[in-house]
Design a protein around this nucleic acid. Sequence first.
DNA 1: GCAATTTAATTTACATGTGATTCATTTCTG
DNA 2: CAGAAATGAATCACATGTAAATTAAATTGC
Lengths: 157, 157
Amino acid sequence: MTKSGLQRELKKKRPFDSPEQEAVLNILRTNDQLQNRLGKFFREYGLTPSQYNVLRILRGEGQPMPSLEIGERMIQVVPAMTGLIDRLEKQGFVQRRRCHEDRRVVYVELTDKAKQLLAQIDGPLDALHSEVMGHLTHTELQELSRLLEKARAKMLN
Amino acid sequence: MTKSGLQRELKKKRPFDSPEQEAVLNILRTNDQLQNRLGKFFREYGLTPSQYNVLRILRGEGQPMPSLEIGERMIQVVPAMTGLIDRLEKQGFVQRRRCHEDRRVVYVELTDKAKQLLAQIDGPLDALHSEVMGHLTHTELQELSRLLEKARAKMLN
DNA sequence: GCAATTTAATTTACATGTGATTCATTTCTG
DNA sequence: CAGAAATGAATCACATGTAAATTAAATTGC
């Protein structure tokens, strides 16, 4: 019996208990390396991956959004959003604007500076995606996405 | 054109730019939900996922290990290891032992308390793996692992 | 109409992750 | 053999993530 690639990577002595366990560890491991790459990439632009994500969401929406809604799309707990937006505001990438109708709500708005930065990132980010995934065929990429979606179906609660 | 599952999940308005991008986001998203589940699971035992990982590695090795070596298997930078092991030591799950031959090296050793906890976790963790991945067929699990390994091949550096 | 509940956001406390620097020890090299 | 370089670990500074509690505002239900 040949050791699996992951087993070798982790210097694991015994084989995996189950294909389920192996798949779980493969997801965690792949994500780790991916985050690493993305982290380095965004650092060149003075952003963290989370910060970029906020900016990307705001650009996609095309108009100011409440903090809570941004948080929902990021699968991120709200408390973290406050600090995240604090830092983006300090860097001049977003502005906070209190809503008049419901004064509990704080709208977050992209600045022009952020829009310019995003435009500058688009190309290189696309290139990075190709670099890390481009050696998989079109069919393999579709299959990978399909399997991950299927896995997620039972993952919540 | 039907929206992909992930596109709907993220309330994304435009389709993905490329299957590469979609696969990348699927990995990140799946990992998020997986980490969430694992986090909740380990919290019931008073551990974080990283802490469990350290204990699991030590058990797999079967003997005390230097901090650096543990860090390598976790793909984790060393500075984080120090604090991680500090907390495990405080909880009584590991002991530090300075090496006599090379006094720079610190060996980390599992306590009996940790071994008992690990034994207690094994069954439920296996059940969790089945719960989140068990609805994929054996073939699908193998294919998922294969695709993730293939993706990782170009991910480093 | 007013107390109770819900909601949006924040604050606090803590675990983790990254990079840069520092310290002590060991090994290498001229 | 002495100084330089490398190595293992720790420390600092900071961004992020989680849970729990708090604040302020809006909504509800009697």
